[in-house]
Simulated scan of single mutants.
Amino acid sequence: MTTAKIAVIGLGSMGYGIAASALKGGLVVHGFDVAKDAMDRFRAEGGAAGTLDTIAGDLAAVMVVVLNAAQTEDVLFGAKGIVPQMRPGSVAIACATVSPAFARQMEERCAEAGVHYLDAPISGGALKAASGALTVLASGTPAAFDAAEPVLAVTAEKVYRLGDHAGPGSAMKAVNQLLAGVHIATMAEAMTFGMTQGVSPEAFMEVIPQCAGTSWMLENRGPHIVEGDYTPRSSVNIWPKDLGIVLDIARSAGFGAPLAAAAMQQFLAAAGSGLSQEDDAAVAKVYARNANLKLPGHTGGGTE
């Protein structure tokens, strides 16, 4: 049996883990990124060599793990777009958070080139990406799912088939991102509110995860604040984009989303304070600054 050859485009915290999981799963994996160091590191760990233009025609699948719709479109159809170079019957698996309308548009353009498109936003974080245990919120034609199966089998723990055409996967991701963004901002608000009443972040993280008010985001991001470690696993600048998509969809549906809008403002404030490249738990620094609180790891200045 011939081993499937794939490319992962975008070797950030999620994409690198996906590429590594695919490699462990026995696929031939080419990894590409604008950062040469990430590409060199992946090749040193077993990634296949070759430039994208020379290997595109040999690929069974390309997994696009970039930041947004503009980058996705550029990878697929830009000046050096990969879709026109891919063989008929191969599949583009698009993982960024985008609008359902954009996903449908990409599916149509890929189909014109004889390439399948899987609307496949992902959830689970960098650790699950690295362990091949992602959740994929997918929609696409049955043929697109079939073509993507070898990749999904070694990179995902759960694959939800949400529709026979692109769009529903991105719609579900928008629902998830509304909750996730609000939960992070709410966690930061609750933790700093507790500090005004003498509840330390350490005590908060000891008690609240055992109570009804907990959430996955609270349990995942809260420790970053306690440790004073804002190394970006998922950065602040993700949320103005993702909650912006949520609010755009809401407006088009005539739907009010006031909690999403409130969370959006907190992330915009964090980004405007110079925190855009820090871990998204750094939204707590906005609350701390406004309440004149000192978070763990406070160094005496800025927004900490």
Rank of each mutant, 00 (worst) to 15 (best):
Arg43Pro: 01
Asp119Glu: 12
Tyr160Glu: 13
Gly57Leu: 03
Glu278Val: 04
Asn292Tyr: 13
Ala69Ser: 14
Val151Ser: 09
Asp280Trp: 03
Thr2Ile: 09
Glu304Met: 07
Gly25Gln: 05
Lys5Leu: 10
Thr155Gln: 12
Gly297Ile: 14
Leu275Phe: 12
Ala261Phe: 02
Ala94Glu: 14
Gln177Gly: 02
Pro232Asp: 10
Gly81Lys: 07
Ala92Phe: 01
Glu219Gln: 15
Gly169Val: 04
Leu247Glu: 01
Thr192Lys: 06
Val98Ile: 15
Ser276Lys: 09
Ser99Ile: 06
Gly222Val: 14
Gly302Arg: 07
Ala48Ile: 06
Tyr16Pro: 04
Thr51Ala: 03
Gly181Pro: 01
Asp279Arg: 01
Arg233Ile: 08
Glu278Leu: 10
Val283Phe: 14
Phe77Met: 10
Gln265Lys: 10
Glu206Ile: 12
Ala94Met: 11
Glu206Cys: 13
Ala188Asn: 09
Arg87Thr: 04
Tyr16Gly: 03
His183Lys: 00
Ala253Gly: 03
Asn68Ile: 12
Gly81Arg: 03
Leu268Val: 08
Ala69Gln: 15
Trp216His: 15
Ile122Pro: 02
Leu23Thr: 06
Val8Asn: 08
Ala166Met: 07
Leu137Phe: 11
Gly81Pro: 05
Phe77Ser: 12
Ala284Pro: 03
Ala291Asp: 08
Thr3Glu: 14
Ile208Lys: 13
Ala203Pro: 07
Val136Ser: 11
Cys211Arg: 15
Gly256Gln: 08
Lys241Phe: 05
Thr141Asp: 08
Arg233Trp: 00
Gly272Val: 10
Gln277Thr: 14
Gln265Val: 04
Ala188Gln: 02
Glu202Asn: 13
Leu268Asp: 07
Glu189Trp: 08
Leu11Trp: 12
Val226Tyr: 07
Ala185Arg: 00
Glu107Leu: 02
Asp164Ser: 14
Lys294Asp: 11
Ala60Thr: 04
Ile82Tyr: 01
His165Trp: 00
Trp216Ile: 15
Val83Gln: 06
Pro121Ser: 10
Val75Pro: 07
Met14Arg: 03
Thr303Asp: 13
Lys294Gly: 03
Asp229His: 13
Pro84Glu: 06
Gly300Tyr: 11
Gly198Thr: 08
Met63Ile: 15
Ala143Leu: 09
Gln265Gly: 11
